[in-house]
């Protein structure tokens, strides 16, 4: 078995709404190894996004521990967390979250601008390579608003890839796309996983479940099913 990349130990997340407490995550314990392709499924409100946000260090757990490469995120400074988001994680959002009136290339460059690499190399070249990898080399200088939904999501994936992260977290990446485009994005994920990138993808789409290597099923803030699929079942 490959080395453990993410480890959740009794992870809890509560939201307080007025007098009420919503338990979005209840004691989730989980290990994700390097190179895995995990599909996270479950009904709406079951805590999938909550888990992704914790793993991506966008939010902090109420209780429990989250370790990445054996390092507990709870003990990290805000700068260290920023560095973690920059180098270790690439986040892909359902709504793309691109900067408007900015070219694809500039969007992809964004994480590089915040990178602390001693030797970053040519930023434009690296961003171009990332765009080539998602098949958008010819659209580099287009503003994001001039791109289709699928193309915008590719730009977002290129942005997630550009800093060579160990892991890509995607929260319903195909949620805003039609079926055909969704399949293209999923093929791209497959390629990335084949290249060794760990993937965690939240989805309602059974297609994803088919191509992924592992399916996590959520309900009411708990994992109710953890299914390891036979290698390459989808291909």
């Amino acid at each position: 078995m490959d080395k453990v990349l993410i480890e959740c130990r009794s992870l809890c997340k509560d939201y307080h709404m007025g007098g009420e407490t919503i338990h979005a995550l209840r004691n989730v314990s989980l290990q994700i190894h390097k190179g895995e392709y995990v599909a996270i499924m479950g009904p709406s409100g079951s805590g999938k996004s909550t888990l992704m946000n914790l793993v991506g260090a966008l939010d902090v757990p109420s209780r429990g521990d989250l370790l990445v490469n054996g390092v507990n995120l709870a003990g990290q400074s805000s700068d260290q967390l920023a560095n973690f988001r920059n180098h270790t994680i690439g986040f892909v959002f359902q709504q793309f979250n691109l900067l408007a009136r900015t070219t694809a290339l500039e969007n992809v460059k964004l994480p590089l601008l915040y990178s602390h690499d001693k030797n970053p190399g040519d930023l434009t070249r690296r961003a171009t390579e990332a765009l080539e990898r998602v098949g958008l080399a010819d659209r580099m200088d287009h503003e994001t608003t001039q791109l289709s939904g699928g193309q915008q999501q590719r730009v977002a994936i290129a942005r997630a890839l550009v800093n060579r992260p160990s892991m890509i977290l995607a929260d319903e990446p195909t949620g805003a796309l039609d079926t055909k485009t969704s399949i293209e994005i999923l093929d791209l994920f497959q390629e990335l996983n084949d290249a060794g990138i760990t993937l965690m993808v939240v989805t309602h789409d059974p297609e994803v479940a088919e191509v992924s290597k592992r399916n996590l099923m959520f309900r009411d803030g708990e994992i109710i099913d953890d299914l390891i699929v036979a290698q390459g079942a989808g291909s």
Binding site: G56, L58, S78, D79, A82, R85, H87, N97, L99, Y114
Partner: peptide, 14 residues
Amino acid sequence: EIGLRLAVGARRKD
């Protein structure tokens, strides 16, 4: 936009 910048690795200082 600020959220996005933070998500891709901007520090508070940045």
